[in-house]
């Protein structure tokens, strides 16, 4: 599994397309048969308690894209804090299982674990 993280609009999906993934292979915040999932953070924000049950299903994906949501002032709202932290913890767990982790900054991919897969 390849994990791509980065801020909103940092170029995660564009980069995924350069790896050979098509738009129709990418599921927007839902778990289905498609090999790519993006907006993982939105799934966590819908239900921050779900990360343990999500993990095995996420491990079956080829590619997961997640917004980094943990920067900036720590929110006063308890639920928002929980959601940010759950997203962060889930990404730590996924990164531990991933063969490769990429962090996008200004559209530039920074490989921070492993090496990029060649998709045949």
């Amino acid at each position: 599994m390849l994990l791509i993280v980065g801020g909103e609009g940092s170029g995660k999906r564009s980069f995924a397309k350069t790896l050979g993934y098509l738009e129709e292979e990418m599921a927007d915040g839902i778990l289905d048969h498609r090999p790519v999932l993006f907006h993982l953070e939105q799934m966590v924000f819908r239900d921050p308690e779900c990360i343990d049950s999500l993990l095995p299903r996420l491990a079956e994906k080829e590619l997961i894209l997640c917004n980094e949501v943990g920067s900036g002032i720590i929110p006063v709202d308890h639920r928002e804090r929980l959601c940010r932290e759950a997203t962060g913890r889930l990404c730590v767990l996924l990164a531990g299982q991933a063969n490769c982790v990429v962090r996008m900054v200004s559209g530039l991919p920074m490989v921070i674990k492993g090496s990029l897969p060649c998709r045949s």
Binding site: G70, I74, R81, G88
Partner: peptide, 11 residues
């Protein structure tokens, strides 16, 4: 440094 729950404490 790093955002919330990015693994700073564990590291």
């Amino acid at each position: 440094t790093g955002g919330s729950a990015c693994g700073k404490s564990s590291y």
